[in-house]
């Protein structure tokens, strides 16, 4: 139940973050449309502000993605360990002859 609540709240948080980004994009686009009356030449760096905003958004999404990937990687390694334990146990069970056979190197 707790994991479901956590999954749902993560989903809502990610959706909310997407909406915030959409709102930011809306404002940036509205500003660019208003500024169109006098378009700055590209070589003058007139679009630098927009590119900086885009860069910040991309970096923010990338950071969130990396955090999510780290959490998934942790879960992967966490999930792999218990599955290997019974094998290690059963390999150890027969006796001293099997010493090292279940060393878990495949884990």
């Amino acid at each position: 139940m707790r994991s479901r609540i956590r999954a749902f709240s993560t989903a809502v948080a990610a959706a909310a973050a997407s909406l915030v980004l959409a709102a930011a994009a809306f404002l940036a686009l509205a500003a660019a449309t208003l500024a169109d009356a006098e378009p700055p030449p590209p070589e003058s760096g007139g679009h630098a502000g927009l590119l900086i905003v885009i860069g910040i958004v991309v970096v923010a999404v990338a950071v969130v993605s990396i955090i999510a990937l780290r959490s998934l990687a942790k879960r992967r390694t966490g999930a792999a360990a218990p599955a290997d334990e019974p094998e290690a146990e059963s390999a150890r069970a027969p006796g001293p002859d099997d010493e090292g056979a279940g060393g878990g190197s495949d884990a």
């Binding site: 999954a7 990610a14 959706a15 991309v58 999404v61």
Partner: peptide, 15 residues
């Protein structure tokens, strides 16, 4: 660029 965030939300919510 926003797709990873949406993807996370959709995966978690099964949407």
């Amino acid at each position: 660029a926003v797709q990873p965030l949406l993807g996370l939300a959709v995966d978690r919510g099964s949407w």
